[in-house]
Simulated assay, not measured.
Amino acid sequence: MPIENIPEIYIKDQKESLDLFVYDFKMTSDVVKSKVNLGMNMFSFLQVGKKQVHFAGTSVSVNKEQSLLLKKGNWLWTELLDTDLVYNCKLFFFSEKILAEFLKKHSQSKNVVIEKPPYFIIKNDKYISSYLNSLSTIGNAPPIFMENLLAVKFEELMLYLLQKYGNKFEDYLHSLVISKSSPFKKIVESTIHSNLKLEEIAFLCHMSLSTFKRHFINVYNESPGKWLKDKRLQKAKETLAQGDLKPTDIYLDFGYNNLSNFSIAFKNKFGISPSEMQA
């Protein structure tokens, strides 16, 4: 699957170096775990549909009741249609330069900010709805005015979210300008309870599949395929032992395409079938 460089693929004049950019993203079919290299931090205002994103070490799902602020970097995006036939999401990109200027002007924080999750969930409300309408309105403004208008709209939005979420949001903004790469082991071990493929995990680690496999063996002294299979089966066993879920509820979550393959792998490892765990 090709890697999409966003927002570059949406910008008509590739020679432009934009600090702020708005794009209306629409689609008419589901997209599952597309590879996205996000070149700028981005607000994703989901208006119609459902969205799930995987980043190094974490994942999050939202519907049209919520929006996301996402950190730049490599993501796996799943975007699903809801009852409507068109998925609709307004994207608002901003550069680190613009963010740093905003923080210098408005931030009161003197604390040392630790690394935060790469996303911030925003609950949609009447203000957000009104704000998105205003963004659509200025989309028809002449290009000569657009840069200044977007600068005003960006500051307005950030001030509102600071007022709404307080220190939690302010600390998150500071974390966006902390240059830290997520440790390899943190990313790998966060994918144990997931159905991500090796190629997708390698992408989140900013590695080719062959480089990822070599590095994995150096770190864990075992092939990634075998290591992940064993860890996921162990996690599946622990999940079934709790008694709340059945094998039919979890096999997809642990990377198996069908219940039969999951049952065979489980029995080969533990000597009993998944259903016997709950007998």
Rank of each mutant, 00 (worst) to 15 (best):
M1D: 03
P2H: 09
P2S: 08
I3W: 10
I3S: 02
I9K: 08
Y10S: 00
E16C: 05
S17V: 10
L18W: 08
D19C: 01
D19T: 00
L20E: 06
V22R: 03
V22Y: 04
V22Q: 07
D24A: 09
T28L: 04
S29G: 03
D30I: 04
M40L: 02
F43R: 02
F45N: 01
Q47L: 14
K50W: 01
K51R: 12
K51D: 08
Q52F: 10
H54L: 11
G57A: 15
T58I: 08
V60R: 11
S61A: 01
V62Q: 14
N63P: 12
N63L: 02
S67W: 12
L68K: 06
K71G: 15
K71L: 10
W75S: 05
L76R: 03
T78L: 02
L80N: 04
D82V: 00
T83K: 03
K90E: 07
F92L: 01
F93Y: 10
F94N: 01
S95F: 02
S95E: 01
E96S: 03
I98S: 13
H106I: 01
Q108K: 13
K110Y: 09
I114S: 09
E115H: 07
K116C: 12
P118N: 13
K123I: 12
D125S: 03
I128A: 01
S129P: 01
N133G: 03
N133V: 02
N133C: 04
I138T: 05
L149H: 00
L149T: 00
L149D: 00
L150P: 00
E156Y: 11
L157Y: 07
M158P: 02
L161E: 10
L162A: 05
Y165N: 07
G166L: 10
G166D: 15
G166H: 10
N167H: 13
N167G: 11
N167Y: 09
F169N: 08
D171H: 08
H174L: 05
H174T: 07
I178E: 05
S179D: 14
S182I: 05
K185S: 11
K186I: 10
E189K: 05
S190F: 15
H193K: 14
H193P: 11
S194Q: 07
K197P: 11
I201V: 08
A202H: 10
L209S: 12
L209W: 13
S210I: 04
T211Q: 14
F212E: 05
F212W: 04
H215W: 13
F216P: 00
I217V: 12
K226N: 08
L228G: 13
K229D: 13
K231T: 14
R232C: 11
E238G: 06
L240I: 06
L240H: 15
I250P: 08
L259D: 15
L259S: 13
N261S: 05
A265V: 06
F270W: 07
G271Q: 15
Q278N: 12
